[in-house]
């Protein structure tokens, strides 16, 4: 269960944030999820509910997911293109010499705390 591990890891990181900021309770967490992070939103939300309710800091908190598009750059022609639509091959020059610029991130953007 890929999403459960990610949720546990996110909770560890959030508990650190809570200790650093002396927060007693977090009511919502906004997560940026890259389009090619391999995470399924609905599974992540289910795992979140289960795991967050077992943390004093995060009990009842809402998880908000902000999707971030995946973008690749072509090393041959220098142009960027949407990764999911075109994959590894540059749609402009057909080179396979491409790299993912962004889209794999699973990042905690902000929390609402009390």
């Amino acid at each position: 269960m890929h999403e459960l591990g990610i949720v546990f890891s996110a909770i560890d990181t959030l508990e650190e944030v809570g200790r650093e900021g002396s927060l007693s309770s977090i009511s919502s967490v906004t997560l940026e999820l890259g389009e090619v992070s391999g995470v399924v939103d609905s599974y992540l939300l289910d795992c979140w509910r289960w795991a967050a309710d077992r943390s004093d800091l995060l009990r009842g908190s809402e998880l908000l997911i902000k999707a971030a598009p995946a973008v690749s750059v072509c090393d041959a022609c220098g142009r960027t293109y949407p990764t999911v639509e075109h994959g590894r091959v540059c749609p402009y020059c057909q080179s396979a010499d491409t790299e993912l610029l962004t889209g794999r991130q699973i990042e905690i953007l902000e929390v609402v705390a009390t």
Binding site: E16, V112, T114
Partner: peptide, 15 residues
Amino acid sequence: EFKVIEVKRSVFDAN
């Protein structure tokens, strides 16, 4: 009483 705190950390940060 609510405050928004910018975190900007990977979920894997603690690990």
